[in-house]
């Protein structure tokens, strides 16, 4: 598709944050040298090197966030421009300097397959929806997405964290301390919020309630994935995968180990960039 030494950007415009990854395609395998020290945590790859990555909250003006994230990544890589831009995520249509647009299904599958070779199933819990993707021979074989409402998405956790006056990160850490997650039966976010308040009023421990919320979403996502007959190993991508409690609950719900790639929030952007190769 392209000649060597090309620089390709993947832009993932999610409902919560916009991520950019810039890659350089290697002329010769095995001679990569990361430009940005902080990226050392990402595994080295014989075919490309990661020059930069950036993350900016999408907020209410996605175009501004896209421009900011892209400029930050260019600055980090010391570049003026790139050879090709591939956009993904819900806001992909808003990226006007784009060569190609792909859905986040394809992008996450590609990114996860690259970061964790041999993956058969990828779970991504986004700000607006969740998806389960089955991969076979590096291709998406099947997928399922939730729709209709915030239940089963990252928004669910945000709402419930707010209900307990916590940030999402605090909410996750609190939940991780629990060994006895309570049951939250309401699937609807609005009802779950009132159920959480009731449980707290009944004196249920805060960490158990928080863990219960994580368990609820994990089971909902599992219900999404199970009809697809997910195969192991299972990867968990997207920013929500940094949530240790959710990884634990998801592992229990799917009855298997869950692998989280390094910098999971960049999986989609990386996948998009790789599609540009």
């Amino acid at each position: 598709m392209s000649s060597g030494n090309e620089i390709i950007a993947g832009v993932d415009v999610g409902s919560r944050s916009t991520k950019v990854v810039i890659l350089r395609k290697m002329l010769q395998a095995g001679c990569q040298s990361s430009v940005v020290d902080s990226l050392q945590a990402l595994p080295s790859h014989p075919e490309y090197e990661i020059l930069a990555r950036s993350l900016v909250p999408t907020g209410w003006t996605p175009q501004t966030a896209i421009a900011q994230a892209f400029q930050q990544a260019l600055d980090q890589a010391g570049l003026q421009s790139v050879s090709r831009v591939i956009a993904t995520g819900y806001g992909r249509s808003l990226v006007d300097f784009v060569d190609r647009r792909i859905t986040e299904i394809t992008a996450h599958a590609r990114g996860a397959a690259d970061l964790l070779p041999g993956m058969r199933t990828v779970i991504d819990i986004g700000g607006q929806d969740s998806k389960a993707i089955i991969i076979s021979d590096g291709l998406v074989e099947d997928f399922a997405m939730n729709d209709r409402c915030a239940a089963g998405s990252g928004k669910f956790l945000e709402y419930l964290a707010m209900t307990m006056n916590l940030t999402v990160e605090e909410f996750a850490e609190l939940a991780y301390r629990s060994n006895n997650p309570t049951n939250i039966s309401s699937i609807c976010t609005v009802f779950a919020e009132s159920e959480v308040l009731s449980l707290l009023a009944e004196g249920v421990a805060r960490e158990d309630v928080a863990a219960g919320a994580h368990k609820a979403i994990a089971w909902r996502v599992a219900q999404l994935a199970l009809p697809l007959h997910p195969q192991t190993p299972v990867a968990f991508s997207g920013g929500v995968a940094r949530n240790r409690c959710l990884v634990r609950e998801l592992s229990q719900a799917l009855k298997c180990e869950i692998l989280v790639p390094p910098y999971p929030e960049f999986t989609g952007a990386l996948g998009a960039a790789l599609i540009g190769f």
Binding site: T103, D129, L139
Partner: peptide
């Protein structure tokens, strides 16, 4: 919700195209 649905359809066609090309 319409945008979500169109996204799913797009992902589905993308998946089938990739499989077909493979």
């Amino acid at each position: 919700m319409q945008a979500q649905l169109l996204n799913r359809i797009e992902a589905f066609i993308e998946m089938l195209k990739n499989r077909k090309n493979a």
